Computed example of a mutant assay.
Amino acid sequence: MDKRTIAMTIAGFDPSGGAGILNDIKTFESLGVYGTAVITALTAQNVHDVAGLLPVDTEFIEKQMDTVLEGEDIGYAKTGMLYSPEIVKTIASKVQEYKLKLVVDPVMVAGSGGSLSKKDFAESLKKDLLPLAVLTTPNIHEAGILSGMKIENEEDAVEAALEIGKYCDKVVVTGGHLKGSDIFYNSSIQVFEGELLESDNTHGSGCTYSSAVTAMLSKGWDTGSSIKFAGKFVKESIRHGSRGTLNQMWKFEDPVQFNLKSV
């Protein structure tokens, strides 16, 4: 396979299938990208609760990455839950070794409210991983932690994006809590307007978003087009979801249906 049709997700395992590794692979598959996966942690969770978490040993995370990357020519990867500074440093080392183009989804708290990261995780992320990333995709809660700011509106999100931009060249603060608009920083600010849907089918929405961006980047799309597409893809996944979880396998024909090729 050509490297632009294969991507990697480095994240935690959600046995309910709504978020994490399983979500990422579903999203890749629905967008025509072959997904490979490196598991950083096991969780016991569902849509409503995180009951337990067991991080994977860093040496075994390295072994997973080495084994896959020695067998496949992969250009783009994304991260989800990394949990600890030790895992962050491990991933950063491998990203540099294999020259991966990385999308960072800075997962820290589950949608149900359960903690998915250790103390000092955010600082390690800013120091060790964000400088290596081609894009980071925090929601407003994650952006607030990374920037040290309280985000209550789009103006606050713009300021947070500028602050996070000191660590990562490209930042999109996703708009699930900001009237649906995504705030994109790439040396300047762009606001991609969207809409909020009245739905409980939001478990895994951040994973779907970052996976969709990664998939489209791996297929050769530019960052702005990939972000706009991901926003629309997530909204349709929410619209067609059920039981609190998105549906990434809704009828998908071609990205051209969103009229985004010219963006």
Rank of each mutant, 00 (worst) to 15 (best):
L54T: 15
V109C: 08
A7Y: 04
D66I: 14
K101Q: 10
V171M: 10
K219A: 10
Y98V: 02
E236N: 08
Y167W: 13
T208P: 00
I74Y: 00
K232S: 00
Y34G: 01
G32L: 02
T36P: 00
V50W: 11
V68N: 06
M65A: 09
I39L: 13
K119Y: 09
L146G: 02
V104H: 08
A51Q: 15
V56L: 14
V107F: 08
Q248I: 04
P15L: 03
I151L: 01
L31Y: 01
G220W: 03
I10L: 07
G176D: 00
A133L: 10
S242C: 10
V47A: 14
S84Q: 11
M1F: 10
F258E: 13
S93T: 12
A215G: 10
D128L: 00
M249S: 11
S210G: 05
V47E: 15
G144T: 03
A122E: 14
G71W: 05
A110P: 04
L82Y: 11
V234L: 00
E163M: 11
T36R: 13
S84M: 08
R243S: 15
K232H: 01
G244K: 03
I183K: 01
N153E: 11
M216Q: 08
T136S: 08
A51L: 15
L100C: 12
M249C: 07
E29C: 10
K119H: 13
A51F: 14
L82Q: 09
V33M: 06
